[in-house]
Structures are given as structure tokens and as C-alpha cells.
């Protein structure tokens, strides 16, 4: 059965694919910048962790995935959700705690999920996702779908036992799993150069008998290439890969973080490294995409986010009748 399923992974991107990737990254950026602005008004409740600056990672990986594949995310999960196809308006409504949200207002920013899209949830627990992805990969393997599981996790989670156990199990069981360590330099307010005892998170792959790859997280094409290779290997039964994506986040750990622990790396990154800027320069220079096409995407995304915020604000909140539902399927 596996033989008839596609294991082909595209290393090449045509104009339309490039535009789609750009749209995803731009949507994530616009979504996060708008949440940042709206949070400041006091209208968004709870904790919000923004993904701005890291768009190339979620996008460069998820562009290879389809309905057979599942991903697990982190508390910084909006980007992964958007890249895996979760409805943007429902996400915004969820962040506002509305009944129309992805989780009917019961999950919030840290728990946005859409299992129908293979999005196993943002996760409030650091290191919560990697063991789960061993499971989705196991299911794909048992059922012979050719599907893969991708666990996104941060440099903080790279030190969690759950993650290290999952890396070992994935290798022992030769699972079609990809572990994407998003090293944005800080676990909360603690530098990964201090908290990760190895030089690189990817170096740990050797200890688990799998390939480890380091990529520039600001470069969509680098992530895309590394993910293509890992996903193809996984689909073909070659087992797991650990990819370390290095970059920095543009905002604090959570909204409200004064970031006094940081130097001025964000300004430099926004100016010189930004994934969207580099993408635009590259695809227009090669002539694969016209600047006007990208501008049009920007305008469409702005409209989408405006509408998402407007609709979220107008949407009803859950009611007392929703408090005790959805705990069990049957109890």
C-alpha cells in the first residue's frame, strides 16, 4: 500500500508555490504584529507569545506537508497553525476568547488546534509535543499512509526529558518523524547559549542515531531545503531527523516582556536578516515573481487580518452553557 502513495517531496518551487509561501509568511507576520498592537489596548486576555521573525521555519517545513501529516507546536504556536492551514479568522476569534474561535474560546492562544488539519495543538507545556508526534508518526507508519509527524519545539524544550525521550524512541522505532528545534536564542529570559550545554541542539542528534542539521532560520529557502530532505527520508522509511533552526524572535517571550535581558539583536535582524525581506529580494531578482504580485498579497493579507480582528471583536463569548461541555465524548 505504501508503494502507491507519494513519497515525492518537491525541492523546487514554481511561481505559484513561491507566492503561496510568501502569503503564509506575510499572514503570520501581519497576524502577530496586529495581535501585538491589539494586546497593548488591553482587549486580548491572558498570555500571548508571538512568532514574528520566525516565519520561515513554520512555512519552510509545512509547505511540504499534506493531510496525512501532523504537527505539534509550542506555546509560540500561531505561526505553525497558520502554516498548517488553520483558519485565520477562527484563530483570531480564539485569541479574543470568542465562541466562534478555533476552540470555541476554551483553549486560547496557547491551545489553538485543528485536528482535521493535522494541527495537534499549540502547547502550553514546554516539551509537551515531541512524544505526541512519535504517536502520530507511529499511526502513519502502522497504517502505511506515508505520512510524517513534525514536532516543533524551542531551545527551552530541547532540554526537557520528554523531548530527549521522544528523539530516542523515534529512532528506536524508526518513525517518520521530524524534530524541528526552533532556537530563537532565549527560553523565556534565559539564553540558549547558556542553557543548552552542547554547542548546537542539532549536535544532540548524533546521540540518538539520527541526522542533525543546522539551518539559518531567517532563510526560507534553507529551511525549505533541509525540511525537504528530512521529510522525504521519513516518508521513504528512513527514520527521523533533527533540524535546528536558528534565528531570533522579534517580540518578547510574551506580550508585556520588557526584554531587559536582550541586546539590540532584534533591530539588526529586522533590518538585515528578515525572512520576508530576503524572500522578496531573492524571488524578484531571479524574476520568478513580480514585486507587484507580492504587494498584492500584502494588501490582501492586511484586509484579511483587519476583517479577522473586526469579526473577532464582534463575536459572542461562550456562555455558562459551554462551561461543562466537551470534557468527555461521553460521561
Amino acid at each position: 500500500m505504501t508503494d502507491t502513495l507519494s513519497t515525492a517531496v518537491s525541492h523546487e518551487l514554481d511561481g505559484n508555490a513561491l507566492l503561496d509561501a510568501y502569503r503564509t509568511m506575510r499572514t503570520i507576520r501581519a497576524f502577530e504584529e496586529r495581535v501585538h498592537a491589539e494586546f497593548a489596548t488591553g482587549e486580548i486576555p491572558g498570555f500571548v507569545h508571538l512568532y514574528a521573525g520566525e516565519e520561515a521555519s513554520a512555512t519552510g517545513v509545512c509547505v511540504h506537508l499534506d493531510d496525512r501529516d501532523a504537527i505539534a507546536s509550542t506555546h509560540r504556536g500561531h505561526g505553525h497553525c497558520i502554516a498548517k492551514g488553520v483558519d485565520v479568522k477562527a484563530m483570531m476569534a480564539e485569541i479574543y476568547g470568542r465562541r466562534t474561535g478555533s476552540c470555541h474560546g476554551k483553549g486560547g492562544s496557547m491551545h489553538i488546534a485543528d485536528l482535521s488539519k493535522g494541527m495537534l495543538g499549540a502547547n502550553g507545556i514546554v516539551g509537551g509535543g515531541p512524544p505526541l508526534i512519535c504517536g502520530t508518526a507511529l499511526a502513519a507508519k502502522q497504517k502505511g499512509t506515508g505520512g510524517v509527524g513534525v514536532a516543533f519545539f524551542g531551545d527551552g524544550a530541547s532540554n526537557q526529558g520528554t523531548t530527549l525521550e521522544a528523539l530516542n524512541l523515534a529512532s528506536v522505532w524508526q518513525l517518520p518523524a521530524i524534530f524541528v528545534a526552533e532556537n530563537n536564542g532565549y527560553a523565556e529570559a534565559t539564553s540558549s547559549t547558556w542553557s543548552v550545554a552542547a554547542d548546537n541542539i542539532a549536535d544532540r542528534a548524533a546521540g540518538f542515531g539520527m541526522p542533525g542539521v543546522i539551518v539559518d532560520g531567517f532563510d526560507f529557502f534553507a529551511v525549505h531545503e533541509a525540511a525537504a530532505e528530512a521529510i522525504q527520508r521519513a516518508r521513504e522509511g528512513g527514520g527521523p531527523t533533527l533540524i535546528e533552526v536558528k534565528f531570533t524572535r522579534y517580540f518578547g517571550h510574551f506580550e508585556g516582556d520588557q526584554q531587559t535581558y536582550r541586546a539590540d539583536e532584534v533591530a539588526n535582524a529586522r533590518e538585515h536578516l528578515d525572512c520576508l525581506k530576503r524572500f522578496r529580494t531573492r524571488v524578484t531578482e531571479t524574476g520568478q515573481v513580480e514585486a507587484a504580485q507580492l504587494d498584492a498579497v500584502d494588501a490582501q493579507v492586511t484586509d484579511l487580518i483587519d476583517a479577522a480582528v473586526e469579526e473577532a471583536k464582534a463575536a459572542p463569548k461562550p456562555t455558562a452553557a459551554d462551561l461543562e461541555t466537551d470534557v468527555y465524548i461521553e460521561y
Binding site: 512524544p131 505526541l132 508526534i133 512519535c134 502513519a140 502502522q142
Partner: peptide
């Protein structure tokens, strides 16, 4: 192929069972 030994690694395999359950198996 349906009875799997695991390493002594409860977080990983209990988590894997849970992940697999969200993906169509009944572990």
C-alpha cells in the same frame, strides 16, 4: 507488528500512545 516493546521511557511511549490515539489508532 501490533505489540510494540518500548525503551524504558514512559514519557515518550505514553505520549506516543496519546498522539497515535489522535491519529486513528486505539493504543
Amino acid at each position: 507488528g501490533r505489540v510494540l516493546d518500548t525503551p524504558i521511557s514512559e514519557s515518550a511511549f505514553v505520549g506516543a500512545a496519546i498522539g497515535a490515539a489522535t491519529s486513528g489508532l486505539r493504543p
